[in-house]
Design a protein around this nucleic acid. Structure first.
Lengths: 253, 253
DNA sequence: CGAATTGTTGAATATTCTCAACAGAGGTGG
DNA sequence: CCACCTCTGTTGAGAATATTCAACAATTCG
């Protein structure tokens, strides 16, 4: 097993090497890690392992015993829930530097899958919860992040319950524009036209919004016809005027 | 101001009296308080005040600066969010012994209103957050409760996104049967027929489910016609066979 | 008791879904 | 490199579900 070999190799790293590895990490100063001091970081680092998960692969199973916690370093993870007859819904998307995993619960309440190729910094369950208990700063930070997730999920509920198909699709694109890693160099002054890479297929977008594939597709062309977006490619769109998209997300018109 | 008088009176209570007050509380061994030891309980008690909020009155405003945290001792609180054009959605219902308030954020992300007459044990913002920081057990407990709320809100998202009107109404009634304080004596062996007191109007139920009043009404009569529920009163229903209701909540059929 | 509010029911309408056909993109093997 | 196949996305027509508008019934409150 590749994971095991990797872990053995990593066990042999010196502490200095370990600390350096975190220093070089893209999310060292973001997400859960941002509040950690040197000692806390090292404690976590000691039980962590890097893992690349290919697109489409399951990370956590719904109802399974939990196996890992993880920081998302790159890529997008989708969290889904299903009804018995197969209807499903994407209850959340995780972007870097989001944290994956449900603490203090024996089973996992949702299914987690790599929506794109994903780079993870994983922690075994028991070790992570032990460190969590021992370091209030870490637990406090995770609490804050959980509160934000709860806020976001309630915001999304309003969208699911009360927005029209047109508003839903516009809101989805807007969410991506805000949350997804920007295309191009992040230090460049923002060009007027924003390009968004869609990490999801039409089917997955439909599962995010509680719509069908066809409705998503129709609303995308509607937005294109209204000159609010340009479809550069099935997986890439351009937004010439973000304010227009914001208006479309608020009122179907 | 009534609240002020009450607070002055309460300041003069002896510590013994205070401790006794908590001992007599209906939710002393539930919710946030259940994990607190004598000392922690007293610290909280010292800054707390009882408050009765009449049905329909606002408790927290959306976007307002936060004013209080509170334990729900009795009654039901509804949390709502609105779009600019007035469309609204009930993003959550709080029953005893739920906790009300969003820690670590300057503004309140939702509107909180008494759905029925509500009895609260309120804590001023700053004092509560100070105690929260000083007592990891309290923060840990609140973290656990927040995680459960997040799980529940994601479960509800699946309902909003993928269930039919019939399934939504059945699921709503089922949720009440599980969460709302049971009618009659709680120590009595459960009668086969469960009676549920609806804490919400049809309009509020519609706002919970992302439906219109009329659709909720029609689905209620549909459930009545199918003998799954009996309408004893606009505000009270009976469920002769909970398993039937569970089936209705899973598949429209 | 009467007014106001809340809930129910019906008919027509609108939005979204379903089914179906087709188009474009991407990958594989000849 | 192209033909072929598969997978994903688009578009259209008809159907289904939920909404809107409207009238009326039941309940609550003063």
């Amino acid at each position: 097993m590749l994971l095991l070999e990797q872990r053995i190799k990593e066990k042999n790293l010196s502490l200095t090497e370990r600390a350096l590895r975190c220093d070089a990490c893209a999310i060292r100063h973001r997400g859960v890690c941002e509040v950690l001091d040197r000692e806390e970081l090292l404690a976590l680092n000691r039980i962590s392992a890097k893992k690349i998960v290919p697109k489409g692969q399951m990370i956590l199973g719904e109802g399974d015993a939990r196996t890992v916690f993880a920081n998302i370093i790159s890529g997008v993870v989708k969290l889904t829930k299903s009804l018995e007859d197969g209807r499903q819904h994407i209850i959340g998307l995780l972007f870097p530097p989001d944290f994956l995993g449900r603490a203090y619960r024996p089973d996992n309440p949702y299914f987690a899958e790599a929506a794109t190729e994903v780079e993870l910094c994983i922690f075994p369950t028991s070790g992570f919860e032990r460190i969590l208990r021992a370091h209030p700063a870490l637990e406090h930070r995770l609490f804050e992040l959980t509160l934000s997730e709860l806020d976001a999920s309630r915001e999304w509920m309003l969208l699911l319950a009360r927005k029209t198909a047109a508003e839903k699709v516009a809101s989805f694109l807007l969410m991506l524009a805000k949350r997804a890693p920007a295309l191009g160099c992040p230090h460049m002054p923002k060009p007027q036209t924003i390009r968004i890479e869609l990490p999801l297929s039409r089917a997955e977008i439909a599962d995010c919004l509680g719509l069908t594939i066809e409705t998503v597709s129709r609303q995308m062309t509607r937005l294109k016809t209204a000159k609010i977006i340009e479809l550069l490619d099935y997986r890439e769109i351009a937004v010439p005027d973000l304010a227009k998209l914001e208006r479309a997300a608020q009122s179907a018109h």
